[in-house]
Each structure stands twice: as structure tokens, then as C-alpha cells.
Simulated assay, not measured.
Amino acid sequence: MIGAVRHINPTTGRDVDDARRGIDTATLDDDTRHAIFEANARPVYPRMSAQVPTAAL
């Protein structure tokens, strides 16, 4: 994910806009996780389907 802030938190050493870390630690079912990481992106980037196969979850 691309955020507006490019800054490293000196305490954690991670980007301050690291949304993936929050999503990974959230309690989500497989369908929701698939929607966040893949299913929402395919309609926005239709050429992606020709380049990237569907992930097996």
C-alpha cells in the first residue's frame, strides 16, 4: 500500500503508514482478507488479471 507519509518510526523501525501490519494483526475471516488484498484491486486494475494469477487462499 502506498501512503502519503514516508517516515520511519524510530521506536519500531517501521513505516508510519504500514497499514498491512494492522490488517495482518486484525481478526479477519479469509473472505474479508481476500477482499482487502486482492478482490478490491482487480476491478480497479483490470489488466492485473492478465499478469497476476488469482491467489489461492
Rank of each mutant, 00 (worst) to 15 (best):
P10A: 05
V52R: 07
H7I: 01
Q51E: 11
D30C: 11
R6G: 08
I36K: 00
V16C: 15
R20H: 10
F37N: 01
G3L: 00
N40H: 15
R33L: 06
P10D: 08
T32E: 05
D29H: 08
S49H: 05
L57I: 03
A41G: 06
H7S: 05
G13Y: 07
R21G: 01
M48P: 00
N9Q: 06
A39L: 10
R21A: 06
Y45D: 09
G22E: 13
I36C: 01
R47G: 06
G3R: 06
D17A: 09
R20P: 02
A41R: 03
L28V: 12
A19Y: 11
D29L: 08
V5Q: 08
M1P: 01
T32N: 02
T54K: 14
P46M: 09
R33P: 00
T12Q: 03
A39T: 07
G13Q: 09
D31K: 15
T25S: 15
M1V: 10
P46I: 01
P10E: 04
V16E: 13
R21E: 02
A55F: 05
R33I: 00
I2D: 07
M1E: 11
T25I: 14
A4H: 12
P10M: 04
D31Y: 15
Y45F: 13
R14F: 13
P10Y: 04
N40W: 14
R47H: 14
A55P: 04
A35F: 07
R42N: 07
T11P: 00
D29C: 11
T12P: 01
P46G: 01
R20V: 12
A19P: 04
G13E: 06
A56I: 02
I2A: 12
E38L: 04
M1G: 09
Q51W: 04
A41F: 08
T27W: 10
